[in-house]
Write a protein that binds this DNA or RNA. Structure first.
Lengths: 187, 187
DNA sequence: TTCTCCATGTAAGTAGTTACATGATTGG
DNA sequence: CCAATCATGTAACTACTTACATGGAGAA
């Protein structure tokens, strides 16, 4: 019979945990702020629901990767966190580890396009336009964020800019392919 | 007390159901063939596990969207399906409906890149390379499929080619951005 | 005869979501 | 005082996955 000591089998931190850790490192202090920062920065390629954040924070604290303290605003409860050196190290290790980085795209728009031959010409073009427009909207939205300069409100961080650019180019590519195809089928 | 008549509250067909329906339309006859066709065609932006396919087929049959019959190979059981006119219509309707087409990307590679500033220079570049390489692999894989010509083994369908091209351009864009960024940080 | 492919199915589990609940603070 | 925002939490559910089970057919 094993004693339930304090270094008990901590479930290994999953991806959501590291995402939360990374956001704390970038200056998001509370669960609420983390959620906001995710929405403003990585939501293009990663989402996290409010519900997952708080347990992750607890787990991170138990592992010693973040320090938390209560900082109630009047009677409203609030816990604020900061990353520890141990946490920094764990984050770097995770980032450095070449474990599989699955690229998962799940897009009904492309699925519908794939089946586009089932439609007659005009309807198919409408569908194509819808997909194109969606990307156009995304591009302008991302460009707006880009203009808003300091992406995550953090100084000295250049990589967020990289991923932002990817989002833009990404959807720009989709727009381009749509346009080209539209040209082609106009014969 | 409602009688359980044959037009009983059929659960509305979800996305997986329509994907299966579309694949049947393109000539995939059995559950097994559907799975294969998905892997060869849309797996870049949609996945479906074997487990979901068979129930979907039953649902489609109950709705009258496909006709199924048993066609055992020797003693090995096998059900083959073909789409009905009603099914064709339902598919077209779904394709035409401008219901939301969520574009969901879930990519740990980009997440890690986003946090890249936590790493020191050389490690960050390694990460960047890893992401780049991943896309390069994808591109060459997709180009191979492209060469293999008739994408889904179907004649007269041009849209599968469109989505294939998207995949290529898509990852090409990622490669480009990686390269550009690598240049930039070499100062 | 052994391996790979064809073909379907069941059972259990995980990851994630939505919906709901609560209430305090801030700004107009 | 009313709305929007800040802040956390709980409970129930859905979608999807992995692992396992079975076995015939065809090829080497």
């Amino acid at each position: 019979m094993r004693p339930a000591d304090k270094s008990a089998p901590q479930p290994p931190l999953g991806a959501p945990g590291y995402v939360v850790l990374g956001m704390v490192r970038l200056g998001a202090r509370s669960g609420y702020e983390i959620k906001q920062m995710v929405e403003l920065s990585i939501r293009f390629f990663w989402t996290i629901s409010q519900v997952q954040i708080y347990p992750s924070l607890e787990q991170l604290e138990a592992a010693g990767f973040v320090n938390g303290r209560s900082e109630p605003q009047g009677k409203r409860p609030k816990r604020v966190f900061e990353i520890t050196p141990k946490g920094e190290k764990a984050l770097r290790q995770w980032l450095g580890h070449p474990d599989p980085m699955p690229f998962e795209l799940r897009d009904l728009g492309l699925v519908k396009l794939f089946f586009g031959d089932a439609l007659d010409h005009s309807e198919a073009v409408e569908l194509l336009d819808a997909v194109k427009k969606r990307s156009e909207d995304r591009v302008s939205m991302l460009r707006a964020i880009e203009s808003a300069a300091d992406v995550a409100g953090t100084e000295g961080n250049v990589y967020p800019l990289l991923t932002l650019r990817m989002g833009i180019r990404f959807h720009q590519a989709m727009i381009d392919v749509c346009r080209e195809f539209e040209q082609e089928i106009l014969e």
